[in-house]
Each structure stands twice: as structure tokens, then as C-alpha cells.
Amino acid sequence: MDIKAYIESGIIESYVLELASPEEAAELEQLMQQHAQVRQAVDAFSASLEQNALNSAVAPPPALKETVMAALMQQANNQPTAAAPFPLRELKSNTLPGAAVVRSAFWKYMAAASIVLLIGSAALNVYFYNGYKTAYTKYQALLSTQNTMQASMDVYKAKMDDMDESIKVMNDPATRMIKMPGVAGHENSLAQVYWNQSSKNVYLSTGNLPATPAGKQYQLWAIVNGQPVNAGMVDDCAGLCKMLTIPNAQAFAITLEKAGGNAAPSMDQMFVLGKV
């Protein structure tokens, strides 16, 4: 082999600049061992490259040295064995399963949280349903109480209306009051007739009459020119009971008759009598 031609072929520079193929590099390394000129040529080109680089050196930022030295110290501390030359890469590949563990732990927590939420939600459903049932029962009770109150209010209102009407009748200046004291045998009984002289309406106040036996009813009579005229049946009314209209009468009387009344009074059953 012509070593001089070999050295001049450019293979030396290819090798030093790492542009040679592995085969070329292996061949050169072998020749370097055998021929001092080859080694010298490699060293000479390397030295001039080194000198060139040193001549054109650009100082890195001054603070960088500290960073670099710190990075090297970190390497020194992290260096586990010489057998593991790339701990950084191993660390990198370890971060992936590590992330997977974190992620699966995350989903475990999520699943646990979901179950807790579900149980909590079910418990709240039971709690709220019980509350709803209690409230519904109370509402029904209130509703029936309210209905009862409304009903009794209607009753009172009707009575009030009657009383109101009675007071109006009694206060009317055209109304005459005729007292009907109890006749012999019924001294304790008492009733009044209010007779409006302009409208001729007759109202009865059953102030103090004994309770009627079953099947019996009081009947008011107007005595017109000595003849009894039916003035109406006495019902259970709160204030004044409106009776039949009587245009003319000299007296009023009440007898106890069969329910529904009679055409003529049973004179032995007279309770009260009052002259106009």
C-alpha cells in the first residue's frame, strides 16, 4: 500500500472529522498502529483543527460555567454504576409508567368519589322522601282543618246575616213590637212579633218557648176580627223568623200543632198571646 498516497487521499481528514464510513475508520485505525506517518498525519490535522478552534474561540456567558459544573456534580451524585452510562434516558423512560400509575390512581380516586356520591345521593333521596311524606300528611291535615273552619265560618256567616237582617227589622221605625207573654199554664213562655206597618211583613222572635216534641211544630196565628189566620210555621231560625205577610190584625198567638201546621189552631195548645 502506498502510505503517502493514502495519507494524501483525504481519508485522514474524513476520519478526524468523522465523515469516514465505519469500514474506512477501522482500516485507518489499523494502519495508524502500523504506520507512524498515518498517526502523525491524524495528529497533525487534529492539532491544526484544535488550534483553529482555539483561535476562533468564543467565550460562553460567564455564568454558564457554574451551571455546567453544577450539572456535572449532579451527574456525579446520580451516577449509580459505570455500567449505566445513560441514567438520564432511563429516567425518561421511567416517567411513562410512573405517569400511568399516577393516572390509574387518579381514576381509582374518581371511582371511589363516584361511589361515595352515589351513596350520599341515595341517602338524601330517602331523607327527602321521608320529609315529603311528613309534609304531605301535615298538609292533608291542614287542608281538612281549613275545610272544617270554612264550613263553620259559612254557618256563622249565615247566622250573622240573619242577625243583621233582624237588627235592621227591629231598628226600622215602621216596625212595631208586639210582646206575646205566656198564657195560663205557660207563664214562663215569651215571644215577640215585629210587624212592619208599611210592608206588612211579620217577623217572629221565639224568645223563650219550650222545645218542641217530635212531630210537633209551633204555628203563629194572626187574630183578624176575632178569626185566627195562619201567619206561618215557626222554623229553627237564628234571629227573627220571617213569617207570612199580615195586612191587618188585632192580636198574635202561637200554638203547638202537628208538623206542617193546621188550618185551624188547637186552642188548648196556645202558649203565648199578645194584643197589638
Binding site: 478552534a53 482555539l54 474561540a57 468564543v58 460562553p60 460555567k65 455546567v68
Partner: peptide
């Protein structure tokens, strides 16, 4: 570092 950082920095640059 002191001896070669400048030369290597120029190679990188």
C-alpha cells in the same frame, strides 16, 4: 472547561 469551553462554544456557534 476553562481551557476548551470557548473553542467548543465556537464549534457549536
Amino acid at each position: 472547561y476553562d481551557s476548551y469551553s470557548g473553542a467548543l462554544f465556537s464549534v457549536i456557534l
